[in-house]
Amino acid sequence: MSDVLNSSKAPEPVGLYPHARRVGNLLFLSGVGPRVRGSKEIPGVTLNPQGEIVDYDIATQCRSVFDNVRNILEECGSSWEQLVDVTVFLTNMKADFPTYNSIYAEYFRSNQPARTTVEVLSLPTPIAIELKCIATID
């Protein structure tokens, strides 16, 4: 059994995919970024008129993406504490990893899912971080 699930609080997907899919007692989240639902706003990002990143604040983006993940989990019947695996994509590992890692430790103090962090050349929207998560669901 597989259920397609979407959140009314998280930013709309930028393609033909759901926020999450439930398979048995697992919830698989699609890639989640820091965008704001219902707008083109990306917290912590300054764009030029061509839509290219001029400046960004990785701390603001981290907090926004973690909040978006939490919203999806809760609306889909899971929770932050039920996360079991997190894959993090950063566009600038050297510059952003220390800040991201510090904020990650704040959010995951009590729950410590398995984690993989990789650097990618770019992401589909002008963001510096994206998360792909797996959680359990009752």
Results as ranks from 00 to 15, higher is better:
residue 6 N to G: 01
residue 7 S to A: 04
residue 8 S to M: 01
residue 8 S to C: 02
residue 8 S to Q: 05
residue 9 K to G: 02
residue 9 K to T: 07
residue 10 A to E: 00
residue 11 P to Q: 06
residue 11 P to F: 02
residue 13 P to A: 03
residue 14 V to G: 03
residue 14 V to S: 05
residue 14 V to D: 00
residue 14 V to L: 05
residue 15 G to V: 07
residue 15 G to S: 14
residue 17 Y to S: 02
residue 17 Y to R: 08
residue 19 H to D: 04
residue 22 R to Q: 12
residue 22 R to K: 14
residue 25 N to L: 01
residue 27 L to P: 04
residue 31 G to I: 05
residue 33 G to Q: 00
residue 35 R to K: 10
residue 37 R to T: 10
residue 38 G to I: 06
residue 41 E to F: 09
residue 42 I to V: 05
residue 43 P to A: 02
residue 43 P to K: 00
residue 44 G to W: 07
residue 45 V to N: 03
residue 46 T to V: 12
residue 48 N to H: 08
residue 48 N to W: 05
residue 48 N to G: 12
residue 48 N to Y: 07
residue 51 G to S: 05
residue 52 E to R: 14
residue 52 E to K: 12
residue 53 I to P: 06
residue 53 I to Y: 05
residue 55 D to R: 13
residue 55 D to Q: 15
residue 55 D to V: 14
residue 58 I to P: 08
residue 58 I to L: 10
residue 58 I to C: 11
residue 59 A to D: 14
residue 62 C to W: 02
residue 62 C to D: 00
residue 62 C to T: 13
residue 63 R to T: 12
residue 65 V to A: 02
residue 65 V to M: 01
residue 65 V to K: 03
residue 66 F to P: 05
residue 66 F to Y: 09
residue 68 N to P: 10
residue 68 N to W: 06
residue 69 V to P: 02
residue 69 V to I: 06
residue 71 N to M: 04
residue 75 E to T: 09
residue 76 C to K: 01
residue 77 G to E: 01
residue 78 S to E: 04
residue 78 S to N: 01
residue 81 E to A: 14
residue 81 E to H: 12
residue 82 Q to C: 14
residue 83 L to H: 04
residue 84 V to N: 10
residue 84 V to K: 15
residue 86 V to N: 08
residue 87 T to W: 04
residue 87 T to P: 02
residue 88 V to H: 08
residue 88 V to T: 14
residue 89 F to M: 13
residue 89 F to G: 01
residue 90 L to Q: 03
residue 95 A to M: 13
residue 96 D to T: 13
residue 96 D to I: 10
residue 96 D to L: 06
residue 97 F to T: 14
residue 100 Y to W: 10
residue 101 N to I: 07
residue 101 N to C: 11
residue 101 N to R: 15
residue 102 S to A: 13
residue 102 S to D: 13
residue 103 I to E: 08
residue 104 Y to E: 04
residue 108 F to P: 05
residue 108 F to C: 03
residue 109 R to L: 09
residue 109 R to P: 04
residue 109 R to I: 10
residue 112 Q to E: 08
residue 115 R to W: 00
residue 115 R to T: 11
residue 117 T to S: 05
residue 118 V to M: 15
residue 118 V to A: 15
residue 118 V to F: 11
residue 119 E to D: 09
residue 119 E to Q: 12
residue 120 V to E: 01
residue 120 V to K: 10
residue 121 L to F: 12
residue 121 L to M: 12
residue 122 S to D: 07
